[in-house]
Design a protein around this nucleic acid. Sequence first.
DNA 1: TGCAAACCTAGAGTGAACTTTAAGTCGAAA
DNA 2: TTTCGACTTAAAGTTCACTCTAGGTTTGCA
Lengths: 151, 151
Amino acid sequence: MNYTIGEVANLLDTNASTIRYYDKEGLLPTVERDRGGARKFNEEDISFLRLIQCLKASGMPIKDIKQFVDWTLDGDETIAQRQQMFHNQKQRVEEEMARLQQTLDMVNYKCWFYDTAAELGSTDISCVDMPEDILEARDRSGIYEVINKEQ
Amino acid sequence: MNYTIGEVANLLDTNASTIRYYDKEGLLPTVERDRGGARKFNEEDISFLRLIQCLKASGMPIKDIKQFVDWTLDGDETIAQRQQMFHNQKQRVEEEMARLQQTLDMVNYKCWFYDTAAELGSTDISCVDMPEDILEARDRSGIYEVINKEQ
DNA sequence: TGCAAACCTAGAGTGAACTTTAAGTCGAAA
DNA sequence: TTTCGACTTAAAGTTCACTCTAGGTTTGCA
């Protein structure tokens, strides 16, 4: 089964220009054309676009994805490079998850802070006891000082 | 205690230009100047810069952080807006964590794939049984089709 | 007094990832 | 046959968050 660029864009919740841009950057070397010159996407192309979206979500820049594409085109000689690439990426994603958890701790603390301030009608909440879990979230977040005073 | 912009940049592992840029964008309305016009940062300013870094890490754009700063300057009238803002941000961070977990599943699958391919010296690993946990990670990642064939 | 280091501003430049525009082609329906 | 929508390209434009440059001041030490 083949798909047009518009169908693929719909399917992957993106738009045709973005897919053309990826193609121009060399990320889609296997996409074929019909007689009229229009791109023809098969299941494999769509699957690969999903992978690209995933790699992008993991913070990988386009030029690194391009490198990966080039390696896959080079075949089995480049298995080691691709293996290394994914192990590096795994570490990056794990670091990002840890950072995001810290950020969530901060946001949770701030949610409690403003929930409390909203009840009191004031950001001076120094009279209120901070629940244990909120205190822990705040400390984990790396946001310690001041903060109870303003913001 | 006061700090110069260079000291603050060091402390927060960023650089002076970035801090000046935040100031220019209105993110640091409380930073004072010395007689010569140089910025003078106190503990509170530094704490607020940490908060900015955290909000940025949560994916909040500068102009939204600016909005938050403006609200804090408006005082207790805007508690509800700030409360809403942090609750929205909490949802965004939670969504991002879920997306990142999916991405990690994909990367874990790919790590297994290339570890196996490296052992075999070939990306045709169809003869190899996929461990249960890897299969689950692959399925959670949303990357199903093809993939065992190439890449 | 002279010099270097660190600060200042305004404004230009950068890089990433799109996104839009202009001008054109293709294939099917009326 | 013409008209419409979806495709094509090259190239310019946009947005974001810096980052750098040029030219100038301030501060502290020898």
